[in-house]
Design a binder for these strands. Sequence first.
RNA 1: GCCGCCAUAGCUCAGCUGGUAGAGCACCUGAUUUGUAAUCAGGGGGUCGGGGGUUCGAGUCCCUCUGGCGGCACCA
Length: 645
Amino acid sequence: MSINVKFPDGAERAYDDGVTPLKIAEGLSKSLAKKVVAAKVDGAWWDLTRALEKDAKIELVVRDSADGLEVLRHDAAHVLAQAVQDLFPGTQVTIGPVVEDGFYYDFYRDEPFSTDDFPRIEARMREIVDADLPIQREVWDRAEAISHFNAIGETFKAKIIDDVIPPGEPITVYRQGNEWKDLCRGPHLPSTGRLGKAFKLMKLAGAYWRGDQANEQLQRIYGTAWADEKQLEDYLHRLEEAEKRDHRRRGRQMDLFHMQEEGRGMVFWHEKGLTLWRTIEAYMRRRLEKAGYVEVRTPQVLDRSFWEKSGHWENYRANMFVCETAEGETLSLKPMNCPGHVQIFKFGQKSYRDLPLRMAEFGACHRYEPSGALHGLMRVRAFTQDDAHIFCREDQIEDEVARFITLANSVHEDFGLTRDHIALGTRPELRAGSEDFWDMAEGQLLNAARKAGVEPVIAEGDGAFYAPKLDFQLKDAIGRIWTCGTIQNDYVLPDRLGAEYVGEDGQKHKPVMLHRAILGSLERFIGVIIENYAGAFPLWLAPVQVTVATITSDADPYADHVVDLLKRAGLRAEADKRNEKIGYKIREHSLAKVPVIAVVGRKEADERKVALRRLGSQEQTVMSLDEALDALKDEAKAPDERRGD
RNA sequence: GCCGCCAUAGCUCAGCUGGUAGAGCACCUGAUUUGUAAUCAGGGGGUCGGGGGUUCGAGUCCCUCUGGCGGCACCA
C-alpha cells in the first residue's frame, strides 16, 4: 500500500506505507531534513517520526519559521523540566507552554529556586541536548495515565488529565530518553539534539496553579529559545535596546519626573515633564473642542453616601482611598469621574435636543492599586484620565462610537503610534444584566466598530462588569503593544443614578452613557510616548525645543536675544552660555535629546545668523535669524495645527 | 497581595571567602574664551535603605521592616 502526499505548492508524491515526515524531508533535500522540526498533516501538528496514517496534505515546518520556533520553544520547556527534575528531585512539573519570544515551565517544589541555580540548570540542559535523547510519542489510556501520574507523584499532571483534557481526546505522553516523560499534546522534535544551543533561562517568577490566587503557589522559570545563536543574540540585543527606552530611566535622565517612597504610585512632575504634560493637554483640548465636547471639573473627594448611590462603595471599595474627618464623616477620593459627570447631567432638565452631550474632564483619580501592580508611570495610584462621558440616545450609540474611533485613531497617529487592533471585551463571568442585554450591547459595539471600518478582535470575558468595551491596542516604534483608549456603552450607571432627559414625546427617558478615553491616563500615556520616541520627542512635544549654545562669551548678549525672540515666537528655548567648548555643549544637548541646537559665535552675532543643528544629524545649516524663527515656528506646530483642523 | 531577586555618593557601578568605603560621570573652585558629540587642575560629598542580631570586628553573615525590579494575581 502506498500513501499519497500533497505538498503546499500543489505537488503530489506517493510514499510507502509507514512513511514519516522526517523521511519525506530527507527524500526532498538534505538541508531541509536538517532544518525541519515538525510537520502539519492536514493542518494538524504531527511529529517528524510519526508515521502517516493515510493520504494527506503535508506541510514541513522548519526551525526558523514562526511555527518552527514554537516547536523548538516547547521542546526547550521540556528539556528545562527534565533538567530541573534531574537536579532537584521531588520537584513536580505542571505546565510548560510557549509564550512570546520564549517559554516557561511552572514547577511545584517546597524549596524556592534562585536565579543562582540557572547556570547549573542551563548546563544540565546542554548535557541533555548533547546526549541527543530520542523523544517518543506514546498514546495512553486515560485512566491508566491518571493513576500512573498519581503513582509517580506527579499529581498536577494527573489533575490536568482529569480536569483539562476533554474525555475522548487521546492522552499523549512524550518520553525523552529512557526515564523521563511528560504529558504533552506535542508535537516534539525527534530527539533533544535537534533543539540546539540557542536558548537561555531568563527569569524566575511566582505563579499560581491554573492562575488562581487560591491555588498552590508555583515557581515559574522563563526561558527564551531561538533557531540559532544569531537569533538569540539579536533578541538579547533587542531587550537591551528596549531597556534603554525605559521611561523610568529616561524620565530621570531627562529630568521629567520622579517618584519616592512616601508616595508609592504617585508622580512628582518636574518642570520639563509638566511641560510635556501641558503640551499634550492643550493638544487634547483643541481636539475635543473641535469634536464637540464640553469640559467640566468635578470634586476630588465626595461623601460615602455618594459612592453608595453610584455602586462604587459596594463594588469598588477595595480600590478606593477612604478618609475620615474630625467630625466623623467618611469620604472617598474619587476613583472615577463618571458619577460626578452624571450629577452635572442631572443638574437642570435635559432635552433630547441636548444629546449627544459629550462631557470631558481631565479627571484626577486615585485608586488603591495592589503594591505589586505598581510600575513607573504605567500603573500608578494617582492619575489623570482624559475622560469623557457621552450621554446619548440608544439610536445614537453606533454613530458616536464610530466618531470616537475616528477621533482616537487620529490622535494616536499624531503621537506616532499605529493601531495594531481594537479588542472587543465581551461579557465577563461576573456581570450585571441579562444575556439579552449583553447580546445587544456587544452587538452595538461590534456594529459601530465595523461602521468605522474596523473589525475588532474578540477578547472573551474582558468586558467591564456593567458593559462590554472596545480597547485600542497600539504598536510603538519597536513593535510593542500598548493599550491606550477605550470606549464602553453603559446602560447601568445612568439608570442607577437617575439620569433622565425629556424626549420628543414629552416623556422622560434614560440616556445611555459612553465612557471613553483616548490616551487613557496622562501619566501612562506619557510613559508610552517616552518609550515610543526613546525620549527623542518630535519638535512639537519636546520640553526644550531649541538650545542656543554659544561658542565664546562674546556671543552671550546675542544668544539671549535669540532665545528671547524664540520665546516670543512661542518656542521653548534655553541659552547655554557656559564656559565650555562647543563640542561639549553639542554632546550634552544631543544626549538630552533637544531637537534643535542653535550654535551662535561671533560670526553669527555679527551677521545676525544662527547655525542650526538637528538631533540625529551632523549637518549645520547657517541661516538668518528671521529665517530660522519662521522655519522653527512652523515646524513646532502640533499636528492638528499643521493640518489646520 | 503572592513568589523570586535587588538596595553602596546626585547618576552608573566596583568592593573575593567578615578586618572599619572606591571609580567614572555629575557638582563646587580655579585656569582656559574655545567653531560642531567629553579642555585641564584641584575640591567637597556616603550613619553602605531602616531596625535588630551573630562576632573581638559587619557594606559583607542571619532576622525583620521599608522600598525598587521581574513575573503572578488584579487592572471600572
